[in-house]
Design a protein around this nucleic acid. Structure first.
Lengths: 366, 366
DNA sequence: CTGTTAGCGCCTTCAG
DNA sequence: CTGAAGGCGCTAACAG
């Protein structure tokens, strides 16, 4: 057992290294910054030896202080509980790693106040830029960040009045893809279920696209005469409010039960007109699935079809259809954009809309 | 539209504030550090006004440089994909918030090399302490951290030869609880499925406890004469190696199929001797569930019982029994421990083992 | 090629 | 109660 010294052995500084190597601080600094060609091999060797001997590691904070940039960027996420977020994070980390950036991850845990505080904290640490998966920030809160201050890029959600690069899913395309799939699969009573819109642009966009798709593709009585126009509804599910959730779910239950009764009563078995639920994201889908599982047991999927944007672990397990977002790429691109801004790119604000991928599973197949 | 200035308006510094308030930097510094009693109300008011006018925010990096502490702590996690990790993180964040710390979250993504690099990076940023959910770090890698260097506390997993506080699940108790539950529920062919042990102490502890529980409680032929000693097996599932996974799963399939054949062939329906799978954690459980779902369809649970340590979202949805870890508390306590160490507590190394909670679901009920 | 000299933004003696 | 001076660890002109 080697007993480590009690007194914290103060970390070696650049001065220590200079002394140890018998030279000045400047040369050490040069060495650290890769200005290696400007150093005589001999000096260089001495420096390397000294660094190794002292186990020297330059203090990033001090470097940052002097040169005005510390390679830190902030990553403010609304909800780590959402698999989407974690996946995006992986892309972010990979990109940061590639670009020599260090992401400071902050988790607002769905609390607007937290979000505000973290944003402030980040500027206090002088991060060089911020990637924001906005929760409820207003343009004003982000002002010191996006506007005159440090560069920002938005992920998934835009912020009212803030001109900043944004990268995320092509919500319009995704919602249309999903809706058409449901229509094509024979569902004609489709419920789009979404959390309260609040300021979350992606929710709004998905809903708008859903409604439009229903209007455009759902209305055609088509060749099948027995089939009248499909109906589209929007249901808001406030996951933070249990009472409201119960109310909303009860509404769905009525619809589904009625439909089920129709189907079983009918003498001639008509293409059982099943209702389909289109969840705006994974948390919503999970809540729905849990409810129906509790209500109808393991076989709940014979009562309702479920499709969700986001492709969580359990989607495959439970067999629901999904639209998978290119999460990794979203995170990666966000960092790239931010990096460019940090480096001073002055181009106009960019929108990067990436396509989702439809993954058809049993839930919506016939 | 207010056009923000093109040139980044350099952030105000303490000097600016001093000038604006018509005083010296010292007073500003005192104000910032809450030495409020030592300032005349008049000066104080001027300072406040100046700060507000300039929208001044002290530079944490600079403060840290001088006073030697920057309120930053590192949180190194092995795998953000594991719900366990994210839950622990929430506790960590809450505690940090309460203690005025800022967690730097680093994600090793199951790569030992990443882990090493992040650890190094963290020391480079002069974090005051580190919470480590170790992946493969050796004592030596952590030496600069835990030993003479900055304080460290371990989460879930201990590190060979490193004397550091550790907080996590009471693995022994949890595994015993789970095993007894399975035994009590009538299963007598129990497979403990775990990822390669490597250096992960919690995996080893769980397995050891499982084996011991089988020995102690599984051997009693008991009152039921038809029931001989229950069998316990350990199966290693290397999730990173598809070929290996296939091989292991095939082995399980044979066992399960044989058992199933027995049960259906027997004329008198004996208490169908079902086999139970005891997953060491959620990722393993998920892999197992996906496999059986693919192989036997939605009704796979009538073939095998599944119990898992960790209680992911989908557990309720799929009805598997679990042992829920007090994740939030684990994270919270870890930060508290670290904080004490940072403040200089010199007590002996502490172990904080928190109990898990058995959540019985359909999978293991009769 | 190499060392000296100033600070970066802040805190901390130490004198007023 | 208040301010001036020095320094934290490092980089960036300037000279040699």
């Amino acid at each position: 057992m080697s007993t480590p010294p009690i007194t914290t052995p103060r970390r070696a500084t650049i001065t220590d290294v200079a002394r140890e190597a018998g030279t000045g601080k400047t040369s050490i600094s040069r060495y650290l910054n890769g200005e290696t060609s400007v150093l005589s091999p001999e000096l260089r060797a001495r420096i390397e030896a000294a660094i190794a001997r002292l186990d020297y590691q330059p203090n990033q904070m001090a470097r940052g202080l002097k040169r005005g940039r510390n390679r830190l960027i902030g990553m403010l996420v609304a909800d780590l509980t959402n698999p989407y977020t974690v996946e995006v994070l992986q892309g972010v980390e990979a990109a940061c790693h590639a670009l020599g950036l260090m992401p400071l991850i902050c988790h607002a845990a769905n609390e607007v106040e937290m979000e505000r505080r973290y944003l402030q904290l980040l500027t206090t640490y002088r991060v060089e830029g911020v990637i924001v998966n906005a929760l409820g920030v207003r343009e004003e809160t982000l002002r010191p960040v996006g506007g005159g201050g440090i560069p920002a890029v938005l992920v998934d959600r835009s912020v009212q009045g803030l001109a900043a690069d944004i990268v995320g899913l092509d919500n319009h395309g995704a919602a249309e893809l999903a809706t058409r799939h449901l229509l094509d699969s024979g569902f004609d009573d489709i419920w789009f279920v979404v959390q309260p819109f609040e300021a979350v642009s992606s929710r709004q966009q998905r809903e708008t696209a859903f409604r439009e798709a229903m209007r455009v593709h759902g209305g055609q009585a088509g060749e099948d005469k027995a089939k009248d126009a499909a109906r589209g509804h929007t249901l808001v599910l406030d996951l933070a409010d249990d009472v409201e959730v119960e109310r909303a779910l009860a509404e769905l239950d009525r619809v589904i039960d009625a439909n089920h009764a129709d189907a079983t009563t009918a003498t001639t078995a008509p293409a059982a007109r099943r209702v389909a639920l289109f969840a705006a994201n994974a948390p919503v889908a999970l809540r729905l699935a849990l409810h129906f599982k509790a209500r109808h047991g393991a076989g709940w999927q014979s009562r309702v079809a479920l499709l969700s944007i986001d492709d969580p672990d359990w989607a495959e397990l439970t067999g629901i259809t999904t639209i998978r977002q290119p999460t990794y790429e979203i995170g990666y691109r966000a960092v790239e954009f931010l990096h460019e801004r940090i480096e001073g790119t002055q181009t106009a604000v960019r929108d990067c809309l990436l396509p989702g991928e439809l993954i058809v599973r049993a839930s919506t197949s016939r």
